[in-house]
Nucleic acid binder design. Structure first.
Lengths: 227, 227
DNA sequence: AGGAATTTGTGCGTATGTATC
DNA sequence: AGATACATACGCACAAATTCC
């Protein structure tokens, strides 16, 4: 039996995910809400504290508690946050190619297979191309089905392979835009460009993915949020 | 006037930093501690919750509260992880200058004062210069004492001003090595260079710090670890 | 091994302060 | 200025985990 304040917090999370609670919606006053949940204000506040720390609820003293449904959290962004310089932007991703190939020499060692799935994508914020990326998913997890590959890559891994990504390490480096970058990407092939190298680990503890993301700094920044 | 629970939390942080509270040490029982601090158990618990969320204290039901001094957290690394390409490196920082100045035009808006403390540092890993950085700490927190400024900047803030940094946002950008970079930095003044922009917030919720860190990519990478 | 004592975790109620509308 | 709503603070009772005898 979980503590009541966690039960309440989880119920609220489910209500947000299910769409019963919409983004920006104002919750009832704490006393009212506590009464309807048959609990005390203190316990309700502890539950809300959880959601505030997750960024799902914003509390404004004297005003109220507001739902902050963050679609990004469960989508393309989840483990890789790119923002427009103004801090907003609806994310999407266009898959340029999916291939099952021998890992080329020069690719860092990761995973256990000599083969890998290579995904190349163009990423957009508000329909503006902001980054291109090349992702290598280790071959031993299986062969990626390009047709069912959507915006939320890690969710697709979970769907196709029951593969859950648990953590990752990102590093920043400076390089050049790859030759396969599409024409409508702001920068031209060969331009100097900052990129992110990423290694990602499965919940089983194996490093299963390596990726590089080159992004147009005029359009977007890579953001690390702490705590 | 800060809330009592934050005052208590900060006093405990100072006591840990000062060495009055050693790693692994067991704190007195909550009721006892609350009495000696002339507060209620609930308020003390809220203060301890802060420290637990920072990893400074571990609470074990039925046993007690234990100090978890994490030297790495309070060192140069804290909230800003630079590694050598091999993943190792003992961090250190040399303070080049500390000045209390009018914020120049062009500096992003943050904090509430027109003045700011400008710190310029050279950062090393294993005594190799890997990055230079310029840090602006808002003037309204006070005037930094250069003499007591060590490697652990955020710990120094806590010491000098009871100022605890709670979270930060980092963004990657590309620019040029500043003119004041020392000779022994690998890159030369004006060289193209990746840098990190950082905004950092106090626990009171005010954005109190802005910094730029230019780093020599041949020597070091900036690393984001997730989860 | 087992039970009592100790210590933190959870839940509730209330009073007062402070920000917002 | 008044009403509303969240923030802080205090205190108590009982549950759960640990420690000690």
């Amino acid at each position: 039996m979980q503590p009541k304040y966690l039960q309440i917090a989880q119920q609220l999370v489910r209500d947000i995910a299910a769409g019963y609670l919409m983004d920006g919606q104002k919750l009832p006053p704490e006393r009212e809400m506590a009464a309807s949940l048959q609990t005390s204000v203190g316990t309700l506040r502890k539950a809300l504290d959880q959601l505030v720390s997750q960024g799902r609820v914003e509390r404004i003293q004297g005003s109220g508690n507001y739902i902050r449904a963050d679609l990004e959290r469960d989508s393309v962004y989840s483990l890789f946050r790119i923002e427009r310089r103004n801090g907003r932007g609806k994310p999407s991703a266009e898959v340029l190619s999916v291939d099952y190939l021998d890992k080329p020499t020069g690719l860092p060692t990761f995973g256990s297979s000599a083969m890998g799935n290579r995904v190349r994508r163009l990423r957009r914020l508000d329909d503006v191309a902001v980054a291109v990326e090349e992702i290598w998913l280790d071959g031993n997890v299986g062969k990626l089905d390009a047709n069912t590959l959507g915006n939320a890559l890690y969710a697709d891994y979970a769907q196709q392979f029951s593969l859950m990504i648990s953590h990752a390490v990102d590093a920043v480096a400076i390089g050049h835009v790859p030759s396969w970058a599409p024409e409508n990407f702001g920068l031209l092939s060969g331009d100097a460009c900052g990129y992110i190298e990423r290694f990602a680990w499965s919940e089983a503890g194996e490093c299963v993915e390596f990726s590089k993301t080159w992004f147009d700094q005029n359009q977007a920044i890579y953001v690390q949020r702490l705590r």
